[in-house]
Design a protein around this nucleic acid. Structure first.
Lengths: 149, 149
DNA sequence: CTACAAGTTCAAGTGAACTTGAAGTCAAGG
DNA sequence: CCTTGACTTCAAGTTCACTTGAACTTGTAG
């Protein structure tokens, strides 16, 4: 039970692959110290940080956005519960939007595809403005390069 | 108001870029006839098919999955409202799962990150089995290569 | 006839989030 | 001394859903 964890320990405890941890470090999402051998040694709070990253991804944030959030944490002390809470408090509306879209899709899907409207540009269901809402890269311009439907 | 549409007409009406339409055709998601010139000519029902593709993507299906769904449509007649309805009826549970996850995330996020559990492998919020639920490529093995949390 | 827009194919590029492979280092065990 | 295993770096590969660019043809207007 050392105070510093190896990369494989962190990988096992977090469920995130070692290669991903190195990748996160390269992107400055997490940090590590080094043992004399050059091996990474992680302080315990890194696990909470990784948990944050994983959940934020589930919510639909990109690593870049997640990095921006993490930068808001106090630099000179270990973040407490309140700090974490503040970060994720803003996810609420984002989640709500996505839920609303899914519910719209669920309710109206058949109607809209079955009906004659097909005006994807204006259809309530298509919800053009919401491209960043967590479907990954996807069709980046899937709607919006057409001025009207 | 010709019975066959050009690619730019289809692009404008559907909001999907012409390059994407060619790409969909390459993937056999849509088809076209050819004018004498070699230019694509689309039959009107292609618009409904494209609408289906776009919505299915929003729900979180990959193009491959969408292709598999479209293959279930009757090959020798134009699909009717009931045909489309049958396809999207199975999306319901998928959407529900995703909504449930988002709601779990919303309710418990701060608790879990703020608390001491951090056992990402077992945590209710992490919901490991749900990797295909519509977050795009993302961390393909983000959880699941660790046997236990 | 000449422009020019709109279409064609095919190969290669993009971005996100990683993974994989090659080549090397280091400590401990037999 | 040699192997094994865990680690290192760096470059390149992977997947998905497209987009972009080059080179070319066709149809329409003036």
């Amino acid at each position: 039970m050392a105070d510093l964890l190896t990369i494989s320990e962190v990988a096992r405890r977090s469920g995130v692959a070692a290669s991903a941890l190195r990748f996160y470090e390269e992107r400055s999402l997490i940090t590590s110290e080094r043992a004399g051998s050059g091996h990474r040694r992680y302080a315990r709070p890194v696990l909470r940080r990784i948990a944050f990253i994983v959940f934020a991804q589930r919510v639909g944030l990109t690593l870049e956005e997640i990095g921006a959030e993490l930068d808001k944490l106090p630099p000179n002390r270990a973040p407490n519960r309140r700090d974490w809470s503040r970060l994720s408090s803003q996810w609420g509306s984002r989640i709500d939007q996505r839920i609303a879209e899914l519910e719209r899709l669920k309710r109206g899907l058949t109607d809209c595809i079955g009906c004659g409207c097909l005006s994807l540009g204006r259809c309530q269901l298509a919800n053009p403005g919401d491209r960043a809402a967590g479907l990954g890269p996807g069709p980046r311009y899937w709607i919006g390069d057409a001025p009207l439907g």
